[in-house]
């Protein structure tokens, strides 16, 4: 097994880059981190929430208990009817009657199955919010023509400003004192706030399909001892 040694993180702050690269670099890093997490989620889903059956995957099901009150309508008192010969109207006599069963409410427990993935809180694996805050020291300003080749034939050509800079080492600047105070004017404070979607649409659809397919399936109730 190769030996891994801890290396100190020494970023090269001296290299100037264009402003788009400086801003997009941490966002690309976050995006890549989310891809790694999405791959981890997919692997987790297939490994623990599904079981492989030949070429296809089947969801692992869990048992859920549904308890709901059921009203028993009861039974009204029924009067006994004396037997009579065929074709003759029966004579009702109030001599015997079965006792009435009063209306009652019972809690009935029903079992149903649910795919395991519908209760696993998967969205907690994603990067929720990113806050990136850094100072950018502008090293040079350039301009380049913007637009397509056809537009460049016009007499007035739009030129797009291009800023080049590097991540400012604010700690060392403060040590330099007031001698380099003019340099602070060339700084831009960049504050990025980025939020990610909770889950990819495909995973959400899979969960939605399984969630919608919940149907209460009564199973045999085991006799309680």
């Amino acid at each position: 097994m190769p030996k891994v040694t801890n290396r100190e993180f020494n970023p090269n702050f001296s290299k100037a880059l264009d402003i788009e690269s400086l801003i997009s670099a941490p966002l690309v890093a976050v995006s890549k981190a989310n891809v790694v997490m999405a791959q981890g989620q997919t692997r987790f889903l297939l490994e623990y929430c599904f079981k492989k059956n030949g070429e296809s995957y089947e969801p692992i099901l869990i048992q859920m208990a549904l308890t709901k009150p059921v009203i028993d309508p009861g039974k009204a008192a029924v009067k006994a009817v004396a037997a009579s010969a065929p074709g003759v109207m029966p004579v009702v006599e109030a001599v015997e009657a079965t006792p009435a069963i009063p209306q009652s409410m019972q809690m009935v427990t029903t079992h149903f199955t649910l795919p395991l993935l519908t209760i696993v809180p998967l969205n907690s694996l994603a990067v929720e919010k990113v806050n990136i805050d850094f100072d950018m020291e502008i090293t040079s300003v350039a301009s380049k023509p913007s637009g397509s080749a056809n537009e460049s034939n016009n007499t007035i050509t739009d030129r797009k400003a291009q800023l080049y800079g590097k991540v400012s080492d604010s700690g060392s600047n403060s040590e330099r004192g007031s001698a380099n105070q003019s340099k602070t004017l060339n700084k831009i404070k960049i504050n990025l706030n980025a939020a990610t979607l909770p889950l990819p649409a495909g995973v959400l659809t899979i969960i939605d399909i399984y969630t919608k397919s919940i149907q209460a399936v009564p199973t045999e109730n085991k006799p309680e001892n």
């Binding site: 692992i60 869990i62 048992q63 859920m64 208990a65 549904l66 308890t67 709901k68 009150p69 079992h111 395991l116 209760i119």
Partner: peptide, 14 residues
């Protein structure tokens, strides 16, 4: 008035 809970037989798996 229905309530839903995990059945005891699936607790270990979850």
């Amino acid at each position: 008035a229905a309530s839903v809970g995990l059945a005891p037989e699936s607790k270990e798996l979850v």
